[in-house]
Deep mutational scan, measured.
Amino acid sequence: KKSYVLIKVKNPKTKETHTIVVPEENLEEVLKALASQPNVKVVDIERFP
């Protein structure tokens, strides 16, 4: 059974918020990819039960 993680990201320029759902096993690479985006800020990470 896969567990999923909900990542909320915000664009500081446009103030838009997006929610991305990723499998927990991919969380680290997704966070690394997001960290390299200049106008993306991770605001929240939630685990799915």
Score class of each variant (00 low, 15 high):
residue 24 E to C: 11
residue 39 N to F: 07
residue 7 I to W: 00
residue 30 V to Y: 07
residue 11 N to F: 05
residue 34 L to S: 00
residue 16 E to F: 03
residue 45 I to S: 01
residue 44 D to S: 14
residue 21 V to F: 09
residue 12 P to V: 15
residue 36 S to K: 08
residue 2 K to M: 11
residue 30 V to I: 11
residue 18 H to T: 11
residue 32 K to S: 10
residue 21 V to H: 04
residue 40 V to D: 02
residue 27 L to A: 04
residue 34 L to Q: 00
residue 42 V to P: 01
residue 31 L to N: 00
residue 26 N to W: 11
residue 29 E to C: 07
residue 26 N to H: 09
residue 9 V to H: 02
residue 7 I to Q: 00
residue 27 L to R: 02
residue 35 A to D: 06
residue 1 K to G: 12
residue 10 K to C: 15
residue 27 L to K: 02
residue 24 E to N: 04
residue 27 L to C: 03
residue 46 E to M: 12
residue 47 R to A: 10
residue 9 V to K: 00
residue 24 E to I: 08
residue 32 K to G: 04
residue 15 K to D: 15
residue 22 V to P: 00
residue 18 H to A: 08
residue 9 V to N: 00
residue 6 L to M: 09
residue 42 V to F: 02
residue 28 E to D: 11
residue 27 L to M: 07
residue 5 V to C: 07
residue 6 L to P: 00
residue 33 A to Q: 12
residue 17 T to L: 10
residue 8 K to P: 00
residue 28 E to Y: 07
residue 17 T to Q: 10
residue 24 E to H: 05
residue 13 K to H: 13
residue 46 E to P: 01
residue 22 V to A: 04
residue 29 E to S: 13
residue 38 P to S: 11
residue 12 P to H: 15
residue 28 E to G: 10
residue 6 L to D: 01
residue 43 V to C: 06
residue 9 V to L: 15
residue 44 D to L: 12
residue 19 T to K: 06
residue 25 E to A: 08
residue 21 V to L: 13
residue 6 L to K: 09
residue 45 I to F: 04
residue 34 L to I: 12
residue 21 V to M: 12
residue 12 P to T: 15
residue 47 R to D: 06
residue 17 T to Y: 08
residue 16 E to V: 10
residue 34 L to V: 03
residue 23 P to A: 12
residue 39 N to E: 09
residue 22 V to C: 03
residue 23 P to G: 06
residue 43 V to I: 10
residue 33 A to S: 10
residue 25 E to V: 05
residue 14 T to K: 05
residue 16 E to A: 04
residue 22 V to L: 03
residue 49 P to M: 06
residue 31 L to M: 07
residue 8 K to F: 10
residue 15 K to C: 15
residue 6 L to S: 08
residue 3 S to P: 12
residue 2 K to I: 14
residue 17 T to N: 05
residue 43 V to G: 02
residue 23 P to C: 07
residue 36 S to T: 08
residue 42 V to T: 01
residue 31 L to S: 01
residue 38 P to W: 02
residue 16 E to T: 05
residue 49 P to G: 05
residue 14 T to R: 05
residue 28 E to C: 10
residue 19 T to E: 07
residue 32 K to L: 11
residue 31 L to E: 01
residue 43 V to A: 03
residue 40 V to I: 09
residue 19 T to D: 08
residue 26 N to G: 07
residue 46 E to V: 13
residue 9 V to G: 00
residue 37 Q to F: 07
residue 37 Q to I: 11
